[in-house]
Amino acid sequence: MKNLTLLVLAAASSLVALTEAHISFRYPCPRRAPYDECPKPSGAHSWSDIDYDPRTPLGTHDRQNLPLPKWPDSFAGTRPVFTAGLTVNTTYDVGAVHKGGSCQWTLSYDGGKTHVVIQDFFRNCLRDAVSGRTSTLPVKIPANAPSGNAVLTWVWNNNEGNRELYASSADVVIRGANGGSLSGVKPALCNYGPASCYIGEESVSAGNWGEAHFKAREPITITVPAN
C-alpha cells in the first residue's frame, strides 16, 4: 500500500510540473517527452528517463539550468521525415504565453553540437497562443538542406515575466540533397546564464525586444558529407 501511495504521489507531482511549466514542442516530439504520440523508453532507457517537464525553460539570465539540447538522445522510434524545400506545421504545447516573444528554429547534423538558424519569427512569436491549448507555426526546411539524421530545435525568448530561454529539440530525418552545406547564423542564446546576451521585458524596456542581439549573430556553415 505504501509503494502504491508513493507511485500516485510521484505521478501527481509530474502532472503538476507539466501543468505549471510554459511551452515546448509537441510536434515533432521533443526528446524524451511524455506525450502519448511520442516514442517510449526501451532498451538502455527506463521509464525514469521520461522528461515529465518538457515545457520548463533551460535557464535564466542568472543561470544555465539545463544544456542545449536538454537531453543527449531520444527514445528509439520512428523519426518524422521532412523534405527539403517544404513547410512543416510544427505544434507547441502551451502553458504560459508571456505575451509572445522571439523564436528561432535551427538544424543540427551532429546531434545538437552545432546549429544553423533556418527561420526566425521575432517579437510576436506565439503572442496569440492560448494557455492550455496547442498552437501551430509553419517552419520551412531550406531547399538545400542535406539529407540525413538531424536535430530540429526551437528557441524562444519571452516578452514578459522572468528573463528566460526556452528550447525544444526533436530528432528528425531530412530528405534532401546527398551531401552539401547549409549556411546561416548561429542562434542567439540570450537570457541563458550571466555571460549571455540580455533581453529585458518588452513592456519595461521601451519596446526593446533584443533586435541588436539577433542582428549580431555569428555566421556559420554546416557541411554534411555525401554518402
Rank of each mutant, 00 (worst) to 15 (best):
M1T: 13
T5A: 14
T5H: 12
L6W: 09
V8W: 09
L9Q: 14
A11Y: 09
A11L: 15
A12S: 12
V16Q: 10
T19S: 13
T19A: 14
T19C: 08
A21Y: 04
A21I: 03
S24T: 05
Y27L: 05
P28D: 03
P30E: 03
R32G: 01
A33T: 01
A33S: 15
Y35Q: 00
D36K: 13
P39G: 08
G43D: 07
G43Q: 10
A44D: 08
A44H: 05
A44I: 11
A44G: 02
D49Y: 12
D49S: 12
D49P: 12
I50C: 06
I50F: 05
R55I: 02
T56I: 13
T56P: 01
T56G: 01
G59K: 08
G59W: 04
G59I: 10
H61E: 07
D62Y: 14
Q64N: 11
Q64P: 02
N65A: 13
K70G: 01
W71I: 04
S74F: 01
F75A: 11
F75Q: 06
G77I: 08
G77K: 05
T78P: 00
R79C: 04
P80D: 10
L86S: 12
T87Q: 10
V88I: 15
D93E: 09
V94H: 08
K99G: 00
G100T: 06
G101I: 05
C103E: 03
C103V: 07
L107H: 04
S108H: 03
Y109R: 08
G112T: 05
G112N: 07
K113D: 09
H115E: 08
V117H: 05
D120N: 15
D120A: 06
F121P: 00
N124S: 14
A129M: 07
S131I: 08
T134F: 10
T134L: 07
S135P: 00
L137A: 01
V139C: 04
I141V: 09
P142M: 09
A143Q: 13
N144A: 15
N144R: 12
G148N: 06
N149R: 12
A150F: 02
A150G: 01
A150L: 05
W156H: 13
W156G: 00
G161Q: 07
R163A: 09
Y166M: 04
Y166C: 01
S168K: 02
S169T: 07
I174D: 00
I174C: 07
I174T: 05
R175H: 13
G176A: 07
L182K: 02
L182Q: 04
S183N: 07
P187M: 14
C190G: 06
Y192E: 04
G193F: 11
P194N: 10
S196M: 09
S196L: 14
C197N: 11
G200I: 04
S205G: 08
S205D: 09
A206T: 07
A206C: 06
G207P: 02
G207Y: 09
N208M: 11
W209P: 01
W209E: 01
G210N: 04
G210Q: 04
E211C: 06
E218R: 06
P219C: 06
P219V: 06
I220C: 00
T221W: 05
I222N: 02
V224N: 01
A226Y: 10
N227S: 15
